[in-house]
Amino acid sequence: MTLRNFNHPSDYLGAAREMADSGCPTLARLLAEEAADRTTDPNEAARIRTEFDGVSLRTES
């Protein structure tokens, strides 16, 4: 197992892709949402969210 620092949106996005490939779509979606939230470009954030199917599962308001 590789330890990973989550300092950039790309770190979250990479982990999201790994989770999707591993058959963990819910975790992938949550990581993708975090990547999108940390992205300063709104168009890139929208692209990230559309890359991962599903609706937001976040409970925070």
Rank of each mutant, 00 (worst) to 15 (best):
L57V: 05
R38W: 13
E18P: 14
L13G: 10
G23W: 03
L27M: 14
L27V: 14
R58N: 09
N7V: 13
R47F: 08
S22W: 09
G54T: 07
G14T: 15
A15T: 09
D11V: 07
H8G: 11
H8K: 15
N7M: 13
R38D: 07
E51W: 00
R47M: 14
N5D: 07
D11W: 05
H8N: 10
G14Q: 09
S61A: 10
I48A: 01
S22I: 07
T39G: 05
A46M: 06
S56Y: 02
S61V: 11
N5V: 00
F52N: 00
S61G: 10
T2G: 05
S56A: 12
D41C: 12
G54M: 05
E18D: 13
L30K: 08
A15C: 13
L30P: 08
P25M: 10
A36Y: 10
R49M: 03
N7G: 09
A32D: 01
A45T: 02
E60Q: 02
A28V: 01
N5G: 04
T59D: 12
F52P: 04
G23I: 05
S61F: 08
A32L: 03
E34I: 10
H8I: 08
A46C: 11
C24A: 08
G23K: 05
R38H: 12
F6Q: 03
E51L: 00
L3C: 04
A35E: 01
S10R: 14
T2S: 08
T39E: 12
L30Q: 07
L27D: 11
P42G: 04
T40H: 11
F52S: 03
E33K: 03
D11A: 05
G14W: 04
I48V: 04
N43A: 15
M19D: 06
A15P: 01
L30F: 10
R17I: 06
E51V: 00
T39L: 02
E44G: 10
E34Y: 08
T26W: 04
F6S: 01
